[in-house]
């Protein structure tokens, strides 16, 4: 009976050290994730400097109109989702492959060096990547076209050939994310009980069989959780990447325009805070719904794999 009475304050006191350790994280989350969320109201307001976030007048759903009026809403939503699915699926496969290979490499030095090299692109900003891409694909000085010419072929005008871009964007996305993304899987593989490998070896499994029957199944929960987390951003185009690689080249938009680049073009000259918030809000809602649905689907398969 007494234990029941030891309520909130008792536990607060009992776990004070842990709670204190938790405090910075909670403060950080509240301050930088929850407090800014109140700014959502801007999506429904006609923003003025004098009124600010709270004092500006409400204007209903007007801020959302421009996106659909542009006539390109369907195209950019489709592009955003397809690109993200492509990046997530292909990216995951490559990242797992890299993680598996790295763990199988026996030479410690070689493993460390190759991992560092794969990690490096993560630190290069998309602005630089954009410049690098131009120097690879441009028609006059591009390395690739120079090479094709030297080998006797005809130059490929990449910047006027939209269909080449899904491949180019995928390549740079994989290249930039592979080292960073594989770290999670590496950690997961390290967590696998080595006894399982030993017994598999005793049973006569070779390296490939060990990978397929031990490593991959063991890291599956991690894979699913990371997949679900990425699904949470499926309606957000990576603006840095698309804008820096494609720039304002209208010829390529059919294949490369995503929600974020469209919103940027539409609003950069008018500085309209309300309309920008409206787009951000819309993306958040769509992402939220997708994540809930995906999580539900996963739970039908195996409850242990879900996020919540």
């Amino acid at each position: 009976m007494n234990t029941k009475k030891k309520g909130f304050f008792y536990h607060l006191y009992k776990y004070r050290v842990f709670l204190l350790m938790l405090l910075p994280g909670v403060a950080y989350t509240l301050l930088f994730y929850y407090y800014p969320m109140t700014g959502i109201v801007l999506a429904f307001k006609k923003y003025t400097y004098a009124g600010g976030i709270w004092g500006s007048k409400w204007n209903g759903l007007t801020n959302f109109k421009f996106f659909f009026k542009s006539g390109q809403a369907w195209r950019v939503i489709r592009n955003t989702v397809l690109y993200n699915l492509l990046f997530i699926c292909v990216g995951t496969v490559f990242q797992i492959a890299v993680a598996v290979f790295l763990t199988e490499i026996k030479s410690r030095t070689f493993r460390k060096v190759s991992q560092s090299f794969m990690f490096l692109p993560h630190f290069i900003s998309w602005v630089i990547v954009g410049v690098m891409a131009f120097n690879i694909f441009s028609s006059d000085y591009g390395i690739l076209n120079r090479l094709i010419e030297a080998l006797g072929g005809n130059k490929i005008p990449f910047y006027t050939t939209p269909s080449a871009w899904p491949g180019i964007l995928l390549f740079f996305n994989i290249w930039k994310g592979i080292g960073y993304g594989s770290v999670m899987y590496l950690a997961a593989i390290m967590g696998v009980d080595t006894e399982i490998y030993e017994s598999a070896a005793i049973d006569g499994a070779n390296v490939f069989q060990r990978i397929i029957h031990v490593t991959i199944p063991s890291i599956m929960p991690t894979v699913v959780i990371l997949f679900l987390l990425s699904i949470g951003g499926i309606f957000r185009g990576n603006f840095d990447m698309f804008y820096n690689l494609v720039g304002s080249n209208g010829l390529l938009y059919g294949y490369t325009d995503v929600i974020d680049t469209l919103a940027f073009r539409a609003l950069i000259s008018s500085n309209d805070f309300g309309m920008s918030s409206a787009i951000g809000f819309m993306q958040s809602v769509m992402c939220f719904i997708t994540v809930i649905l995906a999580n539900k689907l996963v739970s039908l398969y195996d409850r242990d794999y879900t996020l919540f």
């Binding site: 542009s70 006539g71 539409a266 000259s269 008018s270």
Partner: peptide
């Protein structure tokens, strides 16, 4: 404002 934003979103696809 809505129309201007929509036109801005469209125009660079064709104009340049």
């Amino acid at each position: 404002a809505t129309q201007v934003a929509a036109v801005d979103a469209v125009q660079s696809t064709y104009f340049d």
